[in-house]
Amino acid sequence: MSKPEKLIENGIRLDGRKPDELRPIKIEVGVLNRADGSCYFEFGGNKVIAAVYGPREVHPRHQQKSNSAVVRYRYNMASFSVEDRKRPGPDRRSIEVSKVSREALEPVIFQEYFPRSAIDIYVEVLQADAGTRTAGINAASIALADAGIPMKCLVSACAVGKIDGTLVLDLNKDEDNYGQADLPVAMTPDGNITLIQMDGNLTKDEFKEGLEMAKTGCMAIHEMQKAALMEKYSSQIEGENNE
């Protein structure tokens, strides 16, 4: 798609959303049988799958830490996830995304409970439409909970950007390509930021306002993550004490 004349008109964006509206989200928990925990996450046009294994033995051995678990995060885009075939395998971008995503989740995991072990997180992007790292983090944090790994809380992530001088929540592909800024944020429900990156330019005030918008977005996502986990065991446990 070539650059459209206007990305936002009368407060309505190209895909019909308002500036502070998220794309539709669909979450499924426990989609993989082999993994200890897993999650399928749809975030607008993004489709990602996260698998969590562990805690398990560390291979290669030299990576292990004697007093805590190591967390390994692999972000990978499928070759068919974008219009032009993506050359498979890790590249500069996916190595960076893996690193920042791992650091976004590490602070909430009780790593010290499992010395000399590894917690492996695999995130596969099946279809990409801007904001895959945030989708990956959302999926991974649900998969970690599904695997029964102790953590302080879930992590939720979404991006804020600037298009035609207006701050908008959760950019899609065209807004990302032709907009002026992209600011992905990951945070805990109490507002502690675990990931923040910025591409493009924002003024100090815009940055502050954007962060507030991201916070609202993350809270909304957190509620959906919670609902998805609850859904897995929908038949409730009330009255279990009769047994």
Binding site: D36, A145, G148, P150, L229, Y233
Partner: peptide, 19 residues
Amino acid sequence: VFGIASFNNGIRVVPMAGK
């Protein structure tokens, strides 16, 4: 953890999964 919390004799949460 993600699991079932019980409030009898102290608060404990039994995870739904885990090693």
